[in-house]
Every structure is written in structure tokens, then in C-alpha cells.
């Protein structure tokens, strides 16, 4: 053995030892007999190394069990439960493995990327070789980054453990601590959402992950709640979004704003609603006024908002800000 065994090799030997042990191994047995620990140095250094290794293994899905035995006093032992170690029996065809590789690619640039890649490595064991990557050729998924809150929220959702986090409310800007029973994390329309039971408001609520500030902490024991029967978190999100859905009436210059035109719906215009001469009248549904206002502003004089007044004002405010920007930056005081 070389002076210091690379960590991956020490961990490999630890797994093999714990899978093959009769009953259990004590820390002392691990320290003196498993390759890679002999150079750990002091008892404290070994302790730190072993604790870290155990964490890494559990993180990877290796079920390291702590075994106490009355016959051995307080001295704890460890083993790997072979039944819990195994992937349930399954076989994957070359084409199925190709689909899974595509699914893993989904998480590029996300915190879940490593989890997805690891899952793929594990599943390759039961897959035929060579994998057919062209089974669903021509698809390439991309997602908006979910940020650091995603991983802890997924774990808590799965473990049915309550979470606490600091949340900034969009409408009021209020920043407050929230206590939530997480039901499901949903990616939809460019945003990531947590749907859950808000303990302070005693009702179902939707939270945007991007408005969570700082760390997500778990509170209380796992298995502390269940998603109520008959509640579909996806519907909760839909409802929250639907509640906000409105119709904008727009005057659009001929042949312009094709993207807006493609989203227009047929709807009877209120009597007073007329477009200026030479422009078309469109009804376009929207959820977030800010997004639609930004889009309309981009078309400058080719699109005019007629209704609702808030959207009209939002557009005017943005346009004025742009005029002001031009004046501000073309003044003589540029450095």
C-alpha cells in the first residue's frame, strides 16, 4: 500500500469490509484493519475521517447501519445492510439507458446535476451495452437554475419534514420567517415553486424558490405530516396562477408583434374598447403584469395597451424611465 491511499480507495475498502463483515465492525477494528485508515494518525483524526466517510457513503445511498450490542457494552459497531444496498431487480435495454442519459442531461447547470449523473452510473450496471443514445435523438432539455434551496426542499419533501426559511413576499416586499410543511416542488413557466401548508397562515400556500433568502432548515421529526387526501399540489399552483390571470386589450400595428398575435384569444370586446385607426385590437391573457409590460415595451410604438389601466401605467412608467435614461446618460456630466 502506498503512503496515503486516495479517499475513493479507502471508501471502497470500507464498503467491502462492512458488506462482508460477520455481524458488525467496531471503530477500533475499522481503524486497525481497513486499508487506508492506518495512516489516520491520532484517535481524533481517525474519528473525524471516519465520521466524514460515513456521511459520504450515506449520501451515496450506501446503507451504513449502526449496531449496538448489549454483549459489547456501549461500543458501537457498523455494517452495511445488504438487502437495503441493492437496487431492486431490473434490466434496462440499450434504448432505455439512452433515454436515462437524456434525463440526466436535463439537470445541466443545476445543483441536482451530480445526483442525476450518479443515478445514471448506478443504472448503467443493469443496462445493456452499448447504450443507444439515439433512441430519442433530437431532444435536448434545459431548465432555469433552481438555486440552492432545491436540494434541501426535495429532501424535506420526501422525508415529510417541516422547514423554516426566510421569504420575501413579492407584492409587499415584506421579509419574514416562514414555517412550511413541504408538499411538492414544482418547476413551471420559468420559475421554481414550493407548494405546502403554511403553518402560520394555516392554509395551503405557494412559494417561489428565488424569493427564499438564506438557508432552508428542517424542524421537527421526519414523517411529521401527510399531504391531505384530495389535495393536488399542482392544482394549488395552477389555482394561484389562474387567480392572477387577466386579459390585456392591445392595439397592434398591422403585421407586427407576431408572437403576441399567436397568444391572442378570441373574445368579444367591451363596447368602449376600440383600437386607433389602422391598428388591430387583440385580447391577450397574462399572469404577470411585469412580464407582459416588459414585452410590450420592447415593441415600442407597434403595440399600445388599452386596458387594464395598471398594465397601461406599468408600460408608460417603463417608457418614461427609458426616456429619462437617455437624458441622464446624454447629459454633459459623463465621466
Amino acid at each position: 500500500m502506498s503512503d496515503s491511499l486516495p479517499p475513493a480507495e479507502r471508501l471502497l475498502n470500507l464498503v467491502i469490509a462492512l458488506v462482508n463483515t460477520q455481524g458488525r465492525m467496531t471503530k477500533e477494528q475499522i481503524r486497525t484493519s481497513v486499508a487506508g485508515y492506518e495512516r489516520a494518525g491520532t484517535a481524533e483524526a481517525f474519528e473525524r475521517m471516519f465520521e466524514r466517510d460515513k456521511e459520504v457513503l450515506r449520501e451515496l445511498g450506501v446503507p451504513v447501519l449502526t449496531v449496538s450490542s448489549a454483549a459489547h457494552g456501549d461500543d458501537q459497531g457498523y455494517r452495511v445492510d445488504p438487502d437495503a444496498y441493492r437496487l431492486p431487480p431490473m434490466e434496462l435495454s440499450a434504448a432505455q439507458l439512452g433515454v436515462l442519459a437524456l434525463a440526466a442531461e436535463f439537470w445541466q447547470g443545476q445543483t441536482l446535476r451530480t445526483d442525476a449523473a450518479r443515478a445514471l452510473t448506478k443504472l448503467r450496471v443493469v443496462g445493456s451495452t452499448p447504450s443507444e443514445t439515439d433512441a430519442v435523438a433530437g431532444l435536448s432539455p434545459r431548465l432555469h437554475p433552481a438555486g440552492p434551496a432545491l436540494a434541501p426542499l426535495l429532501d424535506a419533501t420526501h422525508d415529510r419534514q417541516a422547514v423554516t426559511f426566510t421569504y420575501r413576499t413579492a407584492s409587499t416586499g415584506e421579509v419574514r420567517e416562514r414555517h412550511v410543511e413541504p408538499w411538492r416542488v414544482i418547476a413551471s413557466r420559468g420559475g421554481w415553486y414550493l407548494v405546502g401548508h403554511d403553518r402560520d397562515r394555516a392554509d395551503a400556500r405557494v412559494f417561489r424558490l428565488s424569493r427564499i433568502e438564506g438557508a432552508v432548515r428542517t424542524t421537527g421529526a421526519p414523517g411529521a405530516f401527510t399531504v391531505p387526501d384530495g389535495v393536488d399540489p399542482a392544482h394549488v399552483l395552477d389555482d394561484a396562477q389562474q387567480q392572477e390571470q387577466r386579459t390585456a386589450w392591445l392595439a397592434v400595428a398591422p403585421d407586427r408583434a407576431g408572437a403576441l398575435r399567436s397568444r391572442a384569444v378570441a373574445q368579444e370586446a367591451p363596447a368602449a374598447m376600440t383600437a386607433p385607426a389602422g391598428m388591430d385590437l387583440l385580447a391577450v391573457p397574462y399572469v404577470r403584469a411585469g412580464d407582459l409590460a416588459a414585452e410590450v415595451v420592447g415593441y415600442t410604438d407597434a403595440v399600445v395597451v388599452l386596458d387594464p389601466p395598471e398594465l397601461r401605467e406599468s408600460v408608460v412608467r417603463r417608457l418614461r424611465a427609458a426616456v429619462e435614461m437617455g437624458e441622464r446618460l446624454s447629459g454633459g456630466d459623463r465621466g
Binding site: V19, A119, K122, D155
Partner: peptide, 18 residues
């Protein structure tokens, strides 16, 4: 194989991601 002939199960997040 020294008893290591089994595929390792997926962790929660791993399964969830795929």
C-alpha cells in the same frame, strides 16, 4: 467480486432527478 456483485440502489434525490 468479494460480495460486491449487486447494483447500488438509488438515493432519494437521484431517483427524483431522473
Amino acid at each position: 467480486s468479494r460480495g460486491m456483485g449487486h447494483a447500488l440502489r438509488l438515493g432519494t434525490r437521484e431517483a427524483v432527478a431522473l
